[in-house]
Design a protein around this nucleic acid. Structure first.
Lengths: 223, 223, 223, 223
DNA sequence: GATGAATGAGGATTCATTCAT
DNA sequence: GATGAATGAATCCTCATTCAT
């Protein structure tokens, strides 16, 4: 079993690059080996199989990512702000490491097997962190108490992943991080124009004796 | 060139099944042929290649889906309700056709090539429909005017896809459709507990028998 | 079994074209069928197999060629002139029908099977005709009596075929027929400069004072 | 990339054998691999494709053949004798290596592609050597000065190839090399019975003390 | 520890050919 | 007689993986 950590990292980096470029099946061990300037056989000194090599990629990243998250979150007050921070950090991560983004999304979407892996734990922990923040926010009254935390988390991750994939395929949102606040804004406040009704309804009620009516129809179906 | 539409459909169905089960690369033409009770060679009478067969799958579905969407939406009033209907319809579609769900997500996430295909048009149109609804809602004042339609759409699709993938991989949300209103609720109103004060304050202010109305503007941007 | 002779000929012509263009194995029945504006299946109404179709091509040609040869040769005097005529006729044939040339040479060189075919008879007869002319020429004293007729025939056919192949591959001798007399000249007289010394020189020396002239006739047709 | 020259040679030999036996298209990589006692995949370690393997065969041979030719020819005096030596050497080569003969003829006749190959160079050089000898012979007066070198070469090669093919297909001339002198004899002197008239006849006739001169002009162009 | 060389296993694709209509 | 449709059979080639050195 190979022990040289530099070589191991070179292989992982090359793998990330090649997998991202061509996808898992189109990528060949030879490509990866060439990129890492080692022989094909050497790859097998460090990783037992092509698939294991793929699965090893997120571990490296996520561990780091996770730790820094914990570090950063300590200094942030309020669950909403924490959630916002996580959205930002994820978009940053994917923006700065588009090849890693491709790999992660390929893995998560393509490989059922991955979820049965130890390597998946890091991902799982990240998800649990988000869940905890949401639950804390619900408990503290910061978030609505009728939320389904799993759904909220899916919204966050799903949205981010969708944006990342769009970027990967269409190149469209040039800068992912800049989208963060749009995302957070909708996530926090929703898309609806807030119901201005209350005030106005009461007005109407109170203004008895006015003659002119107006605008009620619209007001009513403001839901 | 094979022309029998029944056989063509049998092949497509079998392909959908096998692709969903094993993924594109692990699926073999022989498997698909066996599932459709035709010979391997017959597949090639109907589709020029394995990849083309994959790409042909969404076209069949989406066309139908699209049409029915248009039909249904005609009878729905308000853009918010329309958006909710689309969320529902998508979740229904993926719930009722989990194999199609797998294929669509495999394709969309995995294959850059697919986006350059004519078959991709149906997908594109669906996205444009959503965009239009969002824009209409913004114009009518139903939705906040500061929304980024592309982001909102990404949130919807991303969330739905994330849920679908979770279900495919973890089996977790037993019933996708039941999650629809949770999703819609967050999408519409956000996760934050609304600041309950306002209403009352306004009431107080307004109850003074004033004639002129004003201040709504401020209220509006209280979001 | 198909009976329409026009259609049969169309198939043969298309086959000749396609075989010549792509070679036997690269040619497909579909190509040939398309060229003949019939369906693939129709080909099998007229010919039992792809190979049989190939073998059927020379028969058509050679029969014609053979007959005309016989007709022409009747009017030619002297075996040397007859041989020359055959060289010319072959070069003409291949020049005028380059696709047939390709096919014939592919067949003769590639297919051991062809020689066991009835269709090969036409070729065989042509070879025998040449052999007969050579033998007649040897008997009549026109040709050297120590020739090996098979070798001479191989020289003629081999040379011609070599030129034809060169033309097919390199395009080189623009006009094959123009080469005929060069070929014939070498075939008849060889490449060596004849030893001019002895006879004539001596003659000149010795002829001093003779009056009578003679022998020119023989000298002239020595060319 | 395989580098073992022994194995490489084993593959080439097996390929030569199998190609000669079955022809290019009927030959399978599996057959060749079995003959060389390697796996199918190993073939591709040494040659990039089946076709490349075919094309690699003549290179091996021709190089050797060429070198030995040059060596032998050095010791031969006179262009006629050199030409004769080449005919002999070619017939020997094909006689001793009938499988190579088959392959070479298959390639030359079948594959237009081959002429665009680097491997074809060896063949081309061989042809140029012959051409040079012919031209030298013409210059030195050994050969007739009105020869077309390309035609003469085509006659030599064409004849030899024709004999080889006949042997391959009909098995007919048991011994090719024995035919060499028949071929050379015709090539050098042609098939025509030389006009014996001149010298002797004239001598006898002329000795009658005649004075008139005659016929010299015609005699000269009797060549 | 690193690797050059060898290979087993596997799969998409092509086409000549058949046959019911 | 003609053909559209279906298919059996066959093969090149790729690549992850192994292992002796």
């Amino acid at each position: 079993m190979g022990k040289n950590p530099t070589k191991r990292l070179a292989i992982l980096n090359s793998a990330e690059h090649v997998f991202a470029e061509r996808g898992f099946h189109e990528a060949t061990i030879s490509d990866i080996a060439a990129g890492a300037k080692v022989s094909d056989a050497t790859i097998y000194e460090y990783f037992p199989s092509k698939e294991a090599l793929l699965f090893a990629i997120p571990a490296e990243y996520s561990l780091n990512f996770q730790e820094q998250n914990r570090y950063v979150l300590k200094y942030i007050n309020g669950q909403a702000n924490k959630l916002r921070a996580i959205v930002l950090r994820l978009l940053e991560l994917y923006q700065d490491h588009p090849e890693y983004a491709n790999v992660i999304i390929m893995i998560l979407k393509t490989s059922r097997k991955f979820t049965e892996t130890n390597e998946y734990d890091v991902i799982r922990q990240s998800a649990q962190l988000m869940r905890k923040i949401i639950e804390d926010g619900m408990a503290s009254g910061e978030f609505r108490s009728d939320l389904n935390p799993a759904i909220v988390r899916s919204m966050m991750l799903g949205t981010i992943e969708h944006l990342v994939v769009r970027k990967a395929i269409l190149g469209k949102p040039e800068n992912l991080v800049e989208q963060a606040d749009s995302v957070v804004s909708v996530l926090f406040n929703g898309v609806l124009e807030p119901p201005e009704e209350s005030a106005i309804k009461i007005n109407l009620t109170l203004q008895k004796k006015t003659r002119g009516q107006d605008g009620q129809a619209e007001i009513k179906d403001s839901e």
